[in-house]
Design a protein around this nucleic acid. Sequence first.
DNA 1: TTAGGTGCAAACGGTTTGCAATAAG
DNA 2: CTTATTGCAAACCGTTTGCACCTAA
Lengths: 147, 147
Amino acid sequence: MSNTATTTEEHALQALRDSGLRLTQPRRCIIRALSRASEPLSPREVYQQLGEASCDQVTIYRCLGDLEQQGLVHRHEFGDGSTRYQLIAPDGGHSHYVVCRICQHRQPLDICPAPQLEASAAAHGFTGISHTLELFGVCPQCQQGSG
Amino acid sequence: MSNTATTTEEHALQALRDSGLRLTQPRRCIIRALSRASEPLSPREVYQQLGEASCDQVTIYRCLGDLEQQGLVHRHEFGDGSTRYQLIAPDGGHSHYVVCRICQHRQPLDICPAPQLEASAAAHGFTGISHTLELFGVCPQCQQGSG
DNA sequence: TTAGGTGCAAACGGTTTGCAATAAG
DNA sequence: CTTATTGCAAACCGTTTGCACCTAA
């Protein structure tokens, strides 16, 4: 897992600098936490990851908001009441999931209809397009358990 | 706008009956409010629509939850802090929107990658699949104002 | 008759806001 | 130096919960 040309983390840091936002300690830590996560993280989860490098939860909310506005993170709404964020790769890469309605288990999928969607939105004159996409269903295990 | 074979409203009422849920006054009114709306409605908006046929807001939350569980409404998360619901047509029809990040204006789109998505989720053994999909961007008018 | 549904009031919990103190550039 | 950013405390507000009463079937 050594870094390639430009890691997702480096990309985010550089983009922050370029956008004129200050590269503060909390922001570095939050970006690092996101980059190390294997799944999208909620503000609370980021907070828990931080440990000693901790900062106030409010700072996390604000930072994640900034990152989203800069198009550096992808937002997920898994329907459990809290928003989660995932660092977007330099090439725009991100994930989508199917969430089990019963046990909340998340299965990442290998699809993203983004191009098609963005074309449709662009046709109406919209720019700077992003999206949110989640699937919900009942996972194999929970199907057994309940009939 | 006279009704065809089966209106979306009738379909929902029948489905509720079939599922064993009781056809109460509040549920009828809420379904009617949804069927008359030209856009997805939040619990609060449903409440405001009801007028004299009013019921408690808590009842609306519960009813919308039931309808979603029965797969009769499509859930939308426009990112403004409240969930919105849209009655699903007998043929499964529903909409997706691009929401302007600046003025919150919503533009309905004519696309839905559902089949592709569901196939992907089904490949992982999930059943009873539904989805949530929203696009975000800057609308033509707001581009002029700030650009 | 009898579950399932509803209303009311109160609790919950994620997120936002105001403002003084702090640190990045 | 200057201004963006942070931390703390408190407010916000959509949503959920507990429980007694009501009503569809």
